[in-house]
C-alpha cells in the first residue's frame, strides 16, 4: 500500500507530552500536512507545556504563545501583520484545546469566523481542562468523571456541539478528524491550507492521563470513537455541504468505547443506554444533514459562496 503520510518531520521527538498524548501526535501530523511555511499560535493549553519551556522549542516552525482566550485573534493578527508586509504565502494556524475553543476562546473564534479571517483554527479536543489537571469543560461528555465532576455527580450536560456552532458561521471549511485515520487528517489540513478564509478542524485527541486509560490504547480509542459514532468523521463546506468521510461498516455499541476508560467506570447500564440513545440520535441527524444535496440548488450554492 502506498504510504501517503509525508515523511518530513517538523516536530522534534524531544517534546514533553505525556505518554500516549493525542494532542502531540495531532500536531505532528498537522505540520506534516502544512509544511515549513507555517506559523503556529498557541494559547494556554497542554501544548504550552508540550512545546517546551524557554529556551526549548520542539517545533521546527515559529510559534507565538498567547493568552488563553486569544488563539483565533492572535492568528488573525499574525496573518494581517504578514500580509501587509507582502508575506502572504504563509499558513497561520491557531492550535487550541477544547477549553480554549469551546469555552474561554469562543468569542474570539466567533469573531474571526464572522470576519472570515484567513487562518486555520484547530481544536485538539481531549474533553476537559487537562493541563490544569482534568477539570470539566463544555467539551466533556455527559456522564464523564473529572476532578470538578466527581463520580457521585458526573457531568450532567451533553458535550457542546462546536462543529454546528462553526458551521452556523458559514465559514468555507469545517472538518473533524482523529488519530486512527492519519491520512484523512492530513488530507483535511492540506485541503484547509488550499482554501482562503477561516477553516476549522476539530480533532478528537484522547488524553490517557485524564481519561484514566492505558496510554497504548490511544489509537484504539480513537478508532472506537469513530466506529461507535461517538465522534463521527465528517466535513462541511460553507456551512451547507456535509460529507461523512469515514463510515463505520458495522456499528459497535458505545459500551465498547466507554469500558476501557476509567472516567466512565461509574456508569450503570441505564446511563450507558442513554448515551447509546443520544449517540444514535446525533448520528441519524448527521446522516440526514449529509444526505441533503444542496449542489442541485444553484441559488443556494451561489449564495453559499458569497
Amino acid at each position: 500500500m502506498r504510504f501517503t503520510v509525508p515523511e518530513k518531520e517538523l516536530m522534534f521527538p524531544g517534546h514533553v507530552a505525556c505518554p500516549g498524548c493525542g494532542g502531540a501526535l495531532a500536531m505532528r501530523f498537522a505540520l506534516k500536512a502544512l509544511g515549513e511555511k507555517t506559523m503556529v499560535v498557541l494559547p494556554a493549553c497542554c501544548w504550552t507545556i508540550i512545546d517546551g519551556p524557554f529556551p526549548m522549542h520542539s517545533l521546527q516552525v515559529p510559534v507565538l504563545h498567547t493568552a488563553f482566550e486569544t488563539a483565533a485573534i492572535a492568528a488573525a493578527g499574525v496573518k494581517a501583520g504578514l500580509d501587509i508586509q507582502g508575506k502572504n504565502d504563509i499558513t497561520v494556524m491557531a492550535w487550541a484545546g477544547d477549553g480554549g475553543t469551546l469555552d474561554i476562546g469562543i468569542q474570539a473564534l466567533s469573531g474571526a469566523a464572522e470576519r472570515n479571517d484567513d487562518i486555520i483554527y484547530t481544536c485538539y479536543d481531549n474533553e476537559a481542562y487537562m493541563n490544569t489537571g482534568i477539570q470539566r469543560s463544555s467539551a466533556t461528555p455527559k456522564g464523564a468523571w473529572t476532578t470538578t465532576t466527581p463520580e457521585k455527580t458526573p457531568k450532567s450536560e451533553p458535550k457542546k456541539n462546536i462543529m454546528e456552532i462553526m458551521n452556523a458561521h458559514r465559514i468555507p471549511y469545517c472538518a473533524t478528524a482523529t488519530l486512527a485515520y492519519p491520512e484523512d487528517l492530513i488530507n483535511k489540513f492540506k485541503k484547509a491550507q488550499s482554501i482562503r478564509g477561516t477553516k476549522f478542524i476539530h480533532i478528537f485527541a484522547p488524553c490517557p492521563t485524564g481519561w484514566k486509560m492505558a496510554p497504548d490504547l490511544m489509537i484504539k480509542i480513537c478508532r472506537l470513537a469513530v466506529e461507535t459514532n461517538i465522534f463521527p468523521i465528517y466535513e462541511c463546506e460553507n456551512g451547507l455541504n456535509y460529507s461523512i468521510n469515514i463510515k463505520p461498516k458495522n456499528q459497535i455499541p458505545v459500551v465498547d468505547y466507554l469500558k476501557p476508560q476509567g472516567r466512565f467506570r461509574h456508569l450503570i447500564q441505564k446511563d450507558i443506554e442513554q448515551i447509546q440513545k443520544s449517540v444514535d440520535f446525533e448520528w441519524e441527524l448527521l446522516q440526514y444533514r449529509a444526505s441533503r444535496d444542496f449542489t442541485k440548488s444553484k441559488n443556494i450554492q451561489s449564495q453559499a459562496k458569497k
Binding site: K37, F54, H57, Q60, V61, P62, V63, L64, T66
Partner: peptide, 10 residues
C-alpha cells in the same frame, strides 16, 4: 520563517 523560534513560552 528563517528562524523557527518560539515567543512567550513557559
Amino acid at each position: 520563517l528563517s528562524a523557527a523560534k518560539s515567543y512567550g513560552a513557559l
